[in-house]
């Protein structure tokens, strides 16, 4: 038996909305520690890792580890039916191939029950090493989204260069070139407005912009985004979900053969 209650159904709705274009089907692994999902996009270039800790839920019960394969577009259809301030309760048991989403209005006057069919998904889980990164940049998530969208109108790829003074994003295309340079900014009123650059050694990497633009759909989930880079390694783009976990996106670099 699995049962979990979230204060805001809107949170899970936003999470699924942010990843469903990248991965259409995925298996949620449920255990005593929480709900986890790891899936590659269909071209196997990027990877999404979602972790929702059990202590971030209002109620969490998983008697034994349990896998729930879901079509994320179908899941999104149901989550869209939740009211803005509804609570969400998820229930499933191994006896039937269904997960139930219960949406309850704040005054308890409306209770909606949606049952989603679970599916068997064969997926390869990858072990992600706990690596030290050469450079870590934290910046407002809206700023990162603006940069990748702006550069997406110029070129297909972005060259990211981190030095101790700044992080540079550069793109080139048929119409010309663009470079956006962000300096470290620590003296801000709100911590989430900071741009923080931690550099062990300078890095310079190139990535396909369309994936980064896709990752930035998670912007509304967190005010700040953390980008971790090491030479010839996938970039990590992390959105922290306050009090419950994170969504991490990994993207393999483009490397000259």
């Amino acid at each position: 038996m699995f049962e979990a209650q979230m204060a805001q159904a809107a949170l899970l709705k936003q999470i699924i909305e942010s990843i469903r274009e990248l991965i259409t089907e995925a298996t949620f692994e449920v255990s005593g520690t929480g709900m986890m999902l790891q899936a590659m996009d269909s071209s196997h270039v990027s990877l999404v890792a979602l972790n929702l800790r059990s202590d971030g839920f209002q109620l969490f019960r998983a008697d034994r580890p349990f896998s729930m394969g879901m079509n994320l577009n179908h899941m999104a259809k149901m989550l869209k039916c939740a009211g803005k301030d509804d609570t969400l309760t998820m229930r499933a048991d191994e006896a039937n191939d269904l997960v139930t989403f219960l949406f309850e209005s704040p005054g308890n006057e409306r209770l909606a029950e949606f049952e989603l069919k679970l599916m068997d998904i064969t997926s390869e889980n990858l072990g992600i090493p706990d690596a030290e990164y050469s450079a870590t940049v934290s910046m407002p998530s809206a700023e990162f989204q603006r940069i990748v969208k702006d550069l997406g109108s110029i070129g297909d790829t972005v060259e990211i260069t981190v030095t101790k003074d700044d992080v540079r994003f550069a793109a080139s295309g048929d119409i010309g070139n663009a470079t956006i340079k962000c300096r470290q900014l620590l003296d801000t009123e709100k911590p989430e407005d900071r741009t923080l650059i931690e550099m062990v050694e300078p890095v310079n990497l190139t990535f396909a912009l369309r994936y980064l633009i896709n990752f930035s759909k998670a912007t509304s989930l967190a005010p700040s985004v953390t980008i971790k880079l090491s030479t010839e390694m996938p970039v990590v783009v992390e959105y922290k979900l306050s009090d419950i976990g994170y969504v991490r996106f990994y993207l393999a670099p483009k490397i000259e053969d």
Binding site: M40, V45, E124, L126, G127, P234, L251, K254, I255
Partner: peptide, 14 residues
């Protein structure tokens, strides 16, 4: 696409 590596080149299968 040229030069685009797959993510499985970097992370091992569990």
């Amino acid at each position: 696409p040229p030069g685009q590596k797959g993510i499985m080149n970097f992370f091992t299968k569990k």
